[in-house]
């Protein structure tokens, strides 16, 4: 059949109609999720940007446009830079230790000893405790006058005088990082344990027959298989560690002095204690931009390393 121009022209609208129906159906199905995304994420972000250019006194008669004044203020405050650096140091230190310890524990628990199930259950316990509660417990344990830590360290002759853990910057950081490691290492362990259970035994057996020692087996066979899981643990823990607030707030409140102040404590103080919403929004946006760069790198690491899972 020879298609007349009229027929061809008549077919186009029908095709377009079908296409637009499909598109409408797609958008219709997407709309609840888009609506939620808009209400929960996009609209607050737009408002955050709007507020960051204003002097916003929630209790005053109104707000005024101040241009980039809030950004200049938060970026020119040397304390904010110091706190940003502290935040990064905290994240790098905590996550590195958690990945290392978590890997060690996962390898230990993967040996399928009779005690493994009990040990796994015990290691998971810290995950079930709220960070604020953990911090309170740590605060009591570390009290130099009546805490267990100093008591036993003195009883065993390890230290002569009690240590004021939260009264010195170095030991205060040790306490904060120690708390985070105690709380989150089990999470890393669980992820890596799942990864270890997927490592095939054949390559290891073949390599062992060829004379490979435990270290070479780990380095050349186990670790490559674990790479995607380490990347997942790294990404998830880094994101969470940047959000740490409650444990530091309860344990040190940023002290001694301002030595354990992190950006989240600054945001809390500026927004919810001083109610300077404009400055807090500006600091929040700067922090968000910084985190976006870090997250991009993390997602790249994640993408590069999880290819193996797709293969």
């Amino acid at each position: 059949m020879i298609e007349s121009p009229a027929t061809r022209e008549g077919g186009r609208p029908q095709g377009r109609l079908a296409l637009s129906r499909a598109a409408a159906m797609g958008w219709g199905l997407l709309s609840p999720a888009l609506l939620i995304l808009f209400v929960m994420a996009i609209a607050p972000t737009i408002y955050l940007v709007y507020v960051s250019f204003r002097h916003e006194n929630l209790l005053g008669p109104g707000s005024t446009f101040v241009g980039v004044q809030n950004f200049i203020r938060v970026l020119s405050d040397s304390d904010n830079w110091a706190d940003a650096l502290s935040t990064v140091e905290f994240v790098v230190l905590s996550v590195t230790i958690e990945i290392g310890l978590g890997l060690g524990l996962a390898l230990l628990l993967n040996r399928r000893l009779p005690e493994t199930n009990l040990l796994t259950a015990l290691f998971i316990l810290p995950l079930g405790i709220a960070p604020v509660v953990s911090a309170l417990v740590f605060r009591v344990l570390l009290d130099p006058a009546y805490g267990w830590v100093d008591y036993y360290l003195q009883t065993w002759g390890i230290i002569a005088d009690p240590i004021d853990w939260l009264g010195n910057p170095g030991t205060a950081w040790l306490a904060i990082v120690g708390l985070d490691v105690w709380q989150w290492t089990p999470f890393v362990t669980l992820i890596l344990l799942a990864g270890l259970s997927g490592v095939p035994s054949e390559p290891k057996e073949a390599a062992a027959l060829d004379g490979a020692g435990p270290l070479r087996l780990f380095w050349h066979i186990t670790l490559p298989f674990l790479r995607p899981f380490i990347a997942i643990a790294l990404a998830l823990r880094t994101i969470e560690a940047f959000k740490t607030f409650g444990s530091i707030f309860v344990l040190t409140t940023g002290g001694p002095g301002t030595s354990t102040e992190v950006i989240n404590l600054d945001l809390y103080r500026i927004a919810l204690q001083n109610f300077d919403i404009g400055a807090a929004a500006a600091l929040g946006i700067v922090f968000l931009l910084f985190l976006s760069v870090i997250m991009q790198q993390l997602l790249k690491v994640l993408g590069d390393n999880t290819d193996i899972l797709e293969d």
Partner: peptide, 10 residues
């Protein structure tokens, strides 16, 4: 004078 108990600075 050290007249305060350990932990005074926290």
């Amino acid at each position: 004078k050290k007249v305060t108990p350990p932990g005074t600075t926290s």
